[in-house]
């Protein structure tokens, strides 16, 4: 194992960097999508709620590998061959980020919806009765309380998404799994290579969990 790591370590670490980069892009946009769609699913407006429902069910109902193929191959094909707009291409990083953002965003939306709904309705009523507009009340009173209950689920979703980047090896993005496949193809040492890859994922995820625990404890300490 040490032999493999010495020889292919730098490639694998670089690949881990690519995995993290992809995850970071994906999670960043997933948070934005999740927040927007999550709030859309609790507001009064029927159109907003309908959109959120359709979005979440659509994304949750399609396996991520299908979504990845669809975005990476399907969308450029649709633009070039059917819409006749030439030259539309997506890099694997772009397609991968979109795919992760949509997939994770749908789950985040559900976490955020549940978090908002877990805050007692009286909190909103009290804020409104003082004259605060709906969005102001949401921002100052509801979301800060909702986020605290959401953190464990959000971290859980982050971890799932980080691991799901491996699915994007199918569109040729040079992340850890894809790179490891090449290493195995060159060396035939599959036990050692996959063992190293597993440990690398494990380390990153343990670090993430540890950071999450610290964050969670600090948020608790601030108010309770």
């Amino acid at each position: 194992m040490a032999e493999i790591f010495n020889k292919y370590g730098p490639i694998l670490v670089t690949a881990m960097g690519q995995t993290l980069l992809l995850a970071l892009y994906g999670l960043f946009f997933a948070c934005i999508i999740g927040l927007i769609v999550g709030i859309m699913s609790v507001v009064k407006n029927k159109f907003c709620r309908g959109f959120a429902l359709v979005f979440v069910n659509l994304i949750r109902g399609v396996p991520m590998i299908v979504l990845a193929y669809f975005i990476f191959f399907g969308i450029p094909f649709f633009c070039n061959s059917i819409l006749k707009i030439g030259g539309v291409t997506l890099t694997a990083l772009q397609a991968g980020s979109i795919c992760l953002a949509l997939n994770c965003g749908a789950y985040m939306a559900e976490i955020i919806r549940a978090g908002i709904q877990s805050v007692d309705i009286g909190q909103m009523e009290a804020a409104r009765s003082l004259g605060l507009p709906y969005w102001r009340a949401m921002q100052r009173v509801i979301l800060p309380q909702a986020i605290r209950t959401m953190i464990p689920s959000i971290i859980n979703q982050f971890i799932i998404t980080l691991k799901d980047t491996s699915i994007l090896s199918v569109i040729g993005f040079p992340e850890l799994v894809n790179t490891a496949k090449n290493v195995v193809a060159a060396t035939f040492l599959s036990f050692q290579t996959w063992g190293i890859v597993a440990i690398m994922y494990l380390i990153v995820i343990l670090l993430l969990q540890w950071a999450a625990k610290v964050l969670e404890r600090r948020l608790k300490y601030e108010s309770r």
Binding site: G122, Q123, S129, L130, P133, S223
Partner: peptide, 20 residues
């Protein structure tokens, strides 16, 4: 209505203090 509510205070059965 928000302007009006500034002038009409309300006290609830379950207090509804902002927990955060």
């Amino acid at each position: 209505i928000n302007k009006l509510r500034e002038r009409v205070g309300m006290v609830f059965q379950h207090f509804n203090l902002f927990n955060n």
